[in-house]
């Protein structure tokens, strides 16, 4: 069963298109990354999945249940971390965690305490006194303490220091190994590359690519490095050409035979062809979209 499934999911705010015809399938047990720049439609997609926004057209399902139907039933399976959220500032951390657990009708005291310890958050502190990073930790604990089947995390690590980020991902990996599905949005590509099994790239409200993370790097683009080059050559289908000293680097999106044919006309000493890293792929997709 898919944990998340959207079909032609579209949301307009008046005339402004936020997302259009978004098709996503996130299998149960997956660790799914949702990559896109600011304003690409990541949060709109997520907020539509949670029922905060009503889609203009299309549909979304969580564990096979239609979003917008019995929403409390759907939400009981989800742990959600918003990218920016307010909390009741006059409450203490422990009080908010208690309120969250009570709204879920679950006893999460043990797990909440453990997560506070692992993420180094003092439960006795007032929320209004918390730094941005500590507020993020509070949101994470609220999303995790009831051990849901599906985690939907919108930009989860912004504001967290590297040590806490590591601990946070370690917790997510544990939950994922236990069978939970993780769906997280980010524009930090290294995170997606390091932790996610599957990823989708979204830009200007549309999905540009969706595949296993390792396969995304094997798409129709290669990183080519030539050494011993004297001047910047013309390479059809070459992009992002940089000549530093005698080293030429570029991304190539044509077929292999043509590349070799072009290279045969250039003088060089050494050739390296590799898969680009996720960041380069990401930029490549955006460049392709811009051309279109």
């Amino acid at each position: 069963m898919n944990a998340i499934e959207t079909k032609q999911l579209t949301k307009f705010y008046g005339c402004h298109r936020a997302i259009e015809a978004v098709d996503l399938e996130v299998a149960e047990g997956d660790f799914f990354g949702f990559i896109g720049p600011n304003g690409a439609g990541k949060s709109t997609t997520i907020r539509t999945l949670l029922g905060f926004l009503r889609p203009t057209s299309g549909e979304a399902r969580i564990f096979g249940k239609a979003v917008g139907g019995n929403q409390p039933d759907i939400l009981s399976d989800i742990g959600y971390l918003p990218s920016e959220s307010g909390y009741y500032d006059k409450m203490k951390v422990s009080e908010l965690l208690k309120l969250s657990a009570e709204l879920r009708r679950k006893d999460c005291r043990q797990e909440g305490k453990l997560l506070c310890e692992r993420l180094d958050l003092d439960p006795t502190r007032k929320i209004r006194e918390l730094s941005l990073g500590n507020r993020k930790k509070l949101g994470i604990i609220c999303a995790l303490q009831h051990k849901p089947r599906l985690y939907i995390l919108d930009e989860p690590t912004s504001g967290l220091d590297p040590l806490i980020q590591k601990e946070f991902y370690s917790i997510l990996q544990e939950r994922n190994r236990d069978g939970a599905t993780v769906f997280l949005s980010s524009h930090v590509l290294s995170e997606i590359g390091r932790y996610c099994k599957t990823a989708a790239v979204i830009s200007k409200g549309s999905i540009l690519a969706c595949d296993r993370v390792e396969k995304l790097g094997h798409r129709d683009v290669k990183r080519v490095i030539l050494r011993g080059v004297e001047k910047l050559p013309q390479i059809p289908h070459g992009r992002d050409l940089h000549l530093e000293g005698d080293t030429l680097r570029f991304l190539y999106s044509g077929d292999g035979k043509s590349l070799l044919s072009h290279l045969s006309q250039i003088n060089f000493e050494d050739l390296t062809i590799t898969d680009p890293d996720l960041e380069e792929i990401f930029l490549h997709y955006y460049a392709k979209e811009a051309e279109a």
Binding site: L50, G51, Q71, P72, L75, S76, E84, S85, L103
Partner: peptide, 17 residues
Amino acid sequence: GDRTAEFLLCHPVSRMY
């Protein structure tokens, strides 16, 4: 206005509740 609606409504409660 205080952006607490997201916190509240991500729990298994209906809008009518």
